[in-house]
Simulated scan of single mutants.
Amino acid sequence: MEVEELNASQFVNCPPLMPWRQFANWIHMESEQETVRGWIDKGYLPTVRMGRHRMVNVVSLVKSLLEQEDY
């Protein structure tokens, strides 16, 4: 699955921030967590650092996905 294949409808009723490993599991990439980590390292997924933890900013991701649907 590529980042482009993510759909905003997947993010209904989700928390605003999610640990990146939990996010990987949530989008059914549990066996490819390092791919998700790569997306984060390349800036494909918006994140927030909270102490030692890297959290995916799900709100920013959903907003970006919704904006892309407008084109």
Rank of each mutant, 00 (worst) to 15 (best):
M1K: 04
E2F: 09
E2K: 14
V3N: 08
V3T: 11
E4T: 04
E4N: 06
L6S: 03
L6G: 06
L6M: 15
N7H: 12
N7Y: 03
N7Q: 12
A8R: 12
S9R: 15
S9E: 11
S9I: 11
S9Q: 12
Q10F: 14
Q10D: 06
Q10Y: 12
F11L: 02
F11T: 00
F11I: 05
F11A: 00
V12S: 03
V12H: 06
V12N: 00
V12E: 06
N13H: 15
N13L: 03
N13P: 00
C14G: 10
C14I: 01
P15F: 02
P16H: 07
P16Y: 03
P16T: 04
L17F: 06
M18W: 11
P19G: 12
P19N: 13
W20F: 03
W20N: 15
W20S: 10
R21L: 14
R21S: 09
Q22H: 09
Q22C: 08
F23S: 00
A24F: 07
A24C: 03
N25P: 00
N25C: 10
I27C: 09
H28Y: 04
H28K: 07
M29H: 10
M29P: 01
M29L: 15
E30M: 03
E30W: 06
E30Y: 05
S31P: 06
S31V: 05
E32P: 00
Q33P: 00
Q33N: 12
E34T: 05
T35Y: 13
V36M: 08
V36A: 07
R37L: 11
G38C: 14
W39N: 04
I40L: 13
I40E: 02
D41G: 11
D41C: 03
K42N: 14
G43I: 09
G43E: 04
Y44E: 01
Y44I: 03
Y44G: 07
Y44Q: 14
L45M: 04
L45H: 08
L45C: 01
P46L: 10
P46G: 01
T47A: 03
T47V: 13
V48S: 12
R49C: 05
M50R: 14
G51A: 05
G51T: 08
R52I: 02
R52N: 09
H53E: 15
R54D: 01
R54Q: 13
M55V: 00
M55N: 04
M55I: 01
V56I: 14
V56N: 08
V56H: 09
N57D: 15
V58H: 08
V58R: 07
V59C: 06
V59G: 05
S60P: 00
S60I: 00
L61P: 07
L61E: 04
V62E: 09
K63Y: 02
K63V: 08
S64W: 07
S64Y: 08
S64H: 10
S64N: 13
L66M: 13
L66I: 02
E67S: 10
E67P: 00
Q68C: 00
Q68L: 10
D70I: 06
Y71T: 02
Y71S: 13
Y71P: 02
Y71N: 09
Y71L: 13
